[in-house]
Design a protein around this nucleic acid. Structure first.
Length: 290
DNA sequence: ATTTGTCCCTGCGGGC
DNA sequence: TGCCCGCAGGGACAAA
């Protein structure tokens, strides 16, 4: 399940191969994968050079340059384009070696130099979105999901995090999963951070004192930083742009450990449902809020 | 106003 | 052995 560290790893492993190449053709295998529609996607992407590969929240972002020969006449307004890939649960982005094919491929970007970039997705929840890079209609800033994204957890500070949790009694895990509150955290890293900070997933935010908020923020940063260093977590589907697995799944202390002994105290790990997600926690280390 | 449920989709594992 | 069901979960959306 690609969350922030997985998408970051994909961006890092993809960039050296993709940056500087031209998108010569967009091969559409599953029209429903391309937004706003396949024709618009092809029109926005084809003939542009990939300037950079990055990440925002759980989105992989390809920044595309204005087209070569864009004259002051007809293409004066061409300020480039942006491709945003959301992998959701089972999406993958691969650099395809010559002759190599992938399963469940939904679209292929044919790049200069014979390189191919494949977007594959078993469960077809993922999607690719094309935007103009300007401020006008069609630009990524007008995409509500993107426009409403909260700050990056690795770029914010503890004070901002404390404030973002607010004064309400919304349960803390729901806030961590809310992309408009803080961007890029999913079920795995929410559980891992809450465990490390000793905060139960259903604790109302207004029951978490400032010091505990700071501890939680530190845990979030530590978990995400270590996960990036380990190239993400590979449970089943996730691979980087070269097909290699990550290793952070070997460091899980909470996620997927229901019924097992807590690594800190030996208590049996339990699950509860918060915000519609299975949440694994230690009843001892993460005591119920009073 | 927050929060829960349903849907999207496919594979897999548990239960019987 | 084999079928059925629930679960996995990010986000949009509807509903309580």
């Amino acid at each position: 399940m690609p969350e922030l560290p997985e998408v970051e790893t994909i961006a890092r492993t993809l960039a050296p191969d993709a940056v500087g190449r031209d998108i010569q053709r967009v091969e559409v295998l599953d029209p429903s994968a391309l937004h706003p529609d396949p024709a618009t996607f092809q029109a926005l992407a084809t003939g542009r050079r990939i300037e950079s590969v990055g990440r925002r929240a759980k989105l992989l972002l390809l920044t595309l340059a204005p087209r070569d020969g864009a004259s002051t006449e007809d293409n004066a307004e061409d300020s480039g384009a942006i491709l945003a890939v959301h992998l959701r649960m089972t999406g993958r982005v691969f650099v395809l070696a010559p002759g190599m094919e992938t399963d469940r491929t939904r679209a292929v970007l044919h790049l200069s130099g014979g390189m191919r970039l494949a977007f594959a997705d078993l469960r077809r929840f993922g999607s690719m979105h094309a935007f103009t890079a300007g401020q006008g209609a069609g630009s990524i800033g007008t995409w509500p999901f993107y426009a409403n994204l909260g700050p990056e957890p690795l770029s914010m500070n503890a004070a901002e995090f404390r404030n973002r949790l607010g004064l309400g009694r919304t349960r803390i895990k729901a806030l961590l999963l809310d992309q408009s509150v803080i961007a890029g955290i999913g079920n795995i890293y929410a559980d891992e951070a809450l465990f490390r900070a000793g905060v139960r997933p259903d604790t109302p935010a207004n029951h978490i004192p400032p010091k505990k908020r700071d501890a939680l923020f530190a845990a979030i940063q530590a978990v995400l930083t270590q996960a990036i260093a380990e190239n993400g977590s590979s449970i089943r589907d996730y691979r980087d742009a070269h097909g290699d697995a990550g290793a952070f799944q070997n460091h899980f202390r909470a996620y997927g450990r229901e019924g097992k002994a807590c690594l800190a105290c030996g208590e049996i790990m339990r699950v509860m449902r918060v915000a519609g997600r299975t949440s694994t926690f230690c009843p001892q280390c993460q005591p119920a809020p009073r």
